[in-house]
Design a protein around this nucleic acid. Structure first.
Lengths: 155, 155
DNA sequence: CTAGAACTTGAAGTTAACTTTAAGTCAAGG
DNA sequence: CCTTGACTTAAAGTTAACTTCAAGTTCTAG
């Protein structure tokens, strides 16, 4: 089974223009063409496309992804480089995860803040509340919000 | 203690031009000016700026953040709206977290893939390995990678 | 009082990742 | 054979979030 660019785009849930753009940027050197020049995606190309999608989600640029594709096409000599690339990406994702956790804590705090404000009818309720009255799990983030990053919360 | 735009930028670890840009976009209506027109950030503005930073990390646009700031300045009448905004953001972050987890699994699989390839000296080792030989925790993601999204892994 | 560093503004430039447009080509059904 | 919808390319347009530039102003130290 082969697919045209429009069919593959539909299958993956992206725009056909996106796949053409990726091709132009050298991300799809493995896609073959018909005698008339039409792209013919093979079933096995889906894995490539999924990996590209994954790398994009991980925050990699088109340029970086192209490097990976080029390495992969070079064959087994580049296994070490590719391993290093994904290991590095693993670290990046860990970092992203930690940041996302932190952002979540901040938003959780803000939800508590406005729930408390809603009950009292004024933001003064949470805003002027003593730290000791604030639920324990929000104290750290509250202190942090009120000072510059890297500043000691208590002086 | 008050800060100029350059001082505050340094404190927060961003470019001064970024703070000026945010001001121009209506994100900093609370910042006062000296008689000569120079921005004077107060200690308490840090909390605003931290919240803006948090909302940006959560993936909100400048426009959306401005809406929040405008609501906050309107006072207690908008508490419900602001609560709803952060609750919605909570959902968005949960979604982001799930996606990030999934991306991580994919990268973990690729690390295993290239570690296995490295040991064997060829990507054929992991690529052609029977599913039963693949470590259990990678089987699902491997199947998924090899098929279009939303497609049943087994037919 | 003055030099110069840091501030001000509006406008233009940058970047990444697409998307759209225009002009033309391919391929499948009737 | 011909129509028609999907394909092709190159080039231009879009968007968000900044950044840089140019010309002028303010503040602070000597």
């Amino acid at each position: 089974m082969v697919y045209t660019v429009g069919e593959m785009a539909k299958l993956l849930g992206v725009a056909a223009s996106t796949l053409r753009y990726y091709d132009k940027e050298g991300l799809l050197p493995f896609v073959e063409r018909s005698s008339g020049g039409i792209r013919m995606f093979r079933e096995s190309d889906i894995e490539w496309l999924q990996v590209i999608g994954c790398m994009k989600k991980a925050g990699m640029s088109i340029k970086d992804i192209r490097q990976y594709i080029e390495m992969a096409l070079q064959g087994d000599d580049t296994i070490d480089l590719r391993l290093a690339m994904f290991q590095r990406q693993q670290e990046v994702l860990k970092q992203q995860m930690a940041e996302l956790q932190h952002t979540m804590e901040m938003v959780d705090y803000k939800c508590w803040y406005y729930e408390t404000a809603k009950e009292a009818g004024t933001v003064d309720a949470p805003q002027k509340m003593e730290l000791a009255e604030v639920p324990e799990r929000f104290r750290k983030i509250r202190q942090e919000l009120r000072t510059a990053p890297g500043t000691a919360a208590t002086i």
